[in-house]
Nucleic acid binder design. Structure first.
Length: 444
RNA sequence: GCAGCAGUAGCUCAGCUGGUUAGAGCACUAGUUUGUGGAACUAGGGGUCGGUGGUUCGAAUCCACCCUGCUGUACCA
């Protein structure tokens, strides 16, 4: 060991990247298995696209800088820029444009994949995370939009959430468009600022949002955000419109009708749902949780939504001549995992190995045969994978939360019956080898 | 990016009106028990007190800058 710390590699991780441990991975696997079941039931195709895409495929809008690093991780390869994908929707649009003639129309596909964002991380929010995405491409039918909401709801309930713990919020871009038209708001920058402000109603409340629609707002830390500079008359008008006439647009009316045909009611119309700014063209939805989420210091934090989506009728068209209206939804799996782990009653069963202790290396053949007996019976089992005294072996078994150890030493050899020690109760039993598997199944 | 707060052992933190070899609990290692874990006791390892520079006879402690983290905010195509 060298004492020179300065010349050692760093054991720290890059900002926003994390090691994920078994506890959360098991929850994630559980969610994924539910997703797959539901996707098959709903008739979606499974697709995988690569992590990297050409930068111009994933963003038509990258600022023309030397290096396209606004929000994405990129590098230059033989003069072409490559980027790690930041979502699964843009790659889908690219895939559809590339394979348009072969795929069924409409095309229903789902995808699970890691995405990367070069943004500020937060609790349950990383720069590398797993996303689930399901889309209908090539249909204008709002049946598709409605079914996505029903489907997400089924997935969440299979994951153990009840109707009070989550809600699908829906809205339509058309609501705000109509309002803006009425107050003759047409400056693009001003529109965007106003949309961003409205997006924050559920978090900040109307009084703060009105400041953002007007001159600006100072937040808790004393930081100041410039507003959209609308007149107070227009601000009041927007508030009135959004509060009263929220479900007036035709597309939302139709979706509501379909929801009722499905007997689906765990949704609410919420015009403050804005979601991103560029490509959505119609109905938009957001999945939000109704219980408090805390950070590791126990403070309740602004968790935000765990996913959402909407209709984007022009995205595929960006790649060429094919016109493929589409709608889709995605879920941030790691955020869902983070939230589910906070529910006390939530537990995923995991089986830890029975540890076969080593008394004498010359008996290894016996230990291997015991191990084979258990493994053949589909019981997780291992011979203690190290060296050392029995005490050390017991400590190991305890540490990995093994349900039991098997002791097979001098005393047991004489009778041919191993001792099974239950590590939860501390109870020990002498058991014939052919009974061992059955006996263990009783305690795991 | 902007703002506020914070960085002392693997973890949680004490020490901070500047002053001998920097502490505690938990964790870790070894032993009390060379065939028995989760309890107890004993002993031990582990820190250039986030970094760099400054003030001073003397800095974990005071000052400046930088880095990192947390929270809020912005952005999230």
């Amino acid at each position: 060991m060298t004492k020179d710390k300065k010349n050692k590699p760093s054991k720290e991780l890059p900002l926003g990247f994390v090691d994920r441990q078994e506890k959360e991975l098991l929850v994630r696997d559980f969610i994924i298995s539910n997703i797959k079941k539901v996707m098959i039931k709903y008739g979606f195709q499974y697709l995988e696209t690569p992590s990297f895409e050409y930068t111009d495929s994933i963003g038509k809008f990258l600022p023309d800088k030397d290096r396209p690093d606004e929000g994405v991780f990129s590098f230059q390869d033989e003069k072409k820029w490559l980027s790690l994908r930041y979502d699964l929707t843009a790659p889908l649009a690219r895939y559809v444009a590339k394979n348009y003639l072969e795929i069924p129309k409409p095309f229903k596909r789902y995808q699970l994949g890691t995405v990367w964002r070069n943004e500020k991380p937060g609790p349950g929010r990383f720069r590398e995370f797993l996303q689930f995405d399901a889309d209908f491409v090539g249909t204008k039918s709002l049946q598709a939009d409605a079914e996505l909401c029903v489907m997400i709801s089924e997935i969440l309930e299979n994951c153990g959430l009840n109707k009070k713990e989550y809600i699908i919020k829906i809205s339509s871009r058309k609501i705000t468009e109509e309002i803006f038209k009425k107050i003759k708001l047409d400056g693009i920058e001003q529109k965007l600022t106003a949309l961003r402000a409205l997006d924050k109603i559920d978090r900040l409340g109307w009084s703060e949002v009105k400041k953002l629609l007007g001159e600006g707002r100072k937040d808790k830390s004393g930081d100041y955000t410039k507003g959209a500079n609308l007149s107070s008359k227009n601000i009041d008008f927007i508030e009135k419109e959004l509060k009263n006439k929220s479900s007036e647009t035709e597309d939302l009316k139709e979706i509501l009708k379909i929801f009722s045909d499905y007997n689906f009611n765990n949704f609410e119309i919420d015009p403050s749902v804005i979601r991103g700014l560029e490509y959505y063209t119609g109905p938009i939805f957001e999945v939000s949780l109704n219980f408090d989420v805390k950070n590791n210091k126990g403070q309740v934090i602004q968790f935000g939504s765990i996913g959402g989506g909407g209709r984007y009728d022009n995205l595929v068209n960006n790649f060429g001549n094919y016109d493929a209206p589409a709608t889709g939804i995605s879920i941030g799996l790691d955020r869902l995992v983070y939230a589910l782990l906070q529910k006390k009653e939530f537990k995923v069963k995991q089986s830890k190995p029975i540890v076969i202790c080593i008394f004498d290396k010359n008996l290894m053949k016996e230990y291997i045969s015991l191990q084979t007996v258990l493994r053949s019976a589909d019981i997780s089992a291992e011979i203690y994978p190290g060296e050392g005294k029995l005490k050390k072996q017991m400590e190991y078994a305890n540490k990995i939360k093994s349900p039991a150890v098997i002791l097979y030493g001098e005393n047991e050899i004489k009778t041919g019956k191993p001792t099974l020690r239950n590590l939860v109760s501390g109870e020990e039993k002498s058991i014939a080898i052919k009974e061992l598997a059955n006996e263990i199944k009783k305690i795991i």
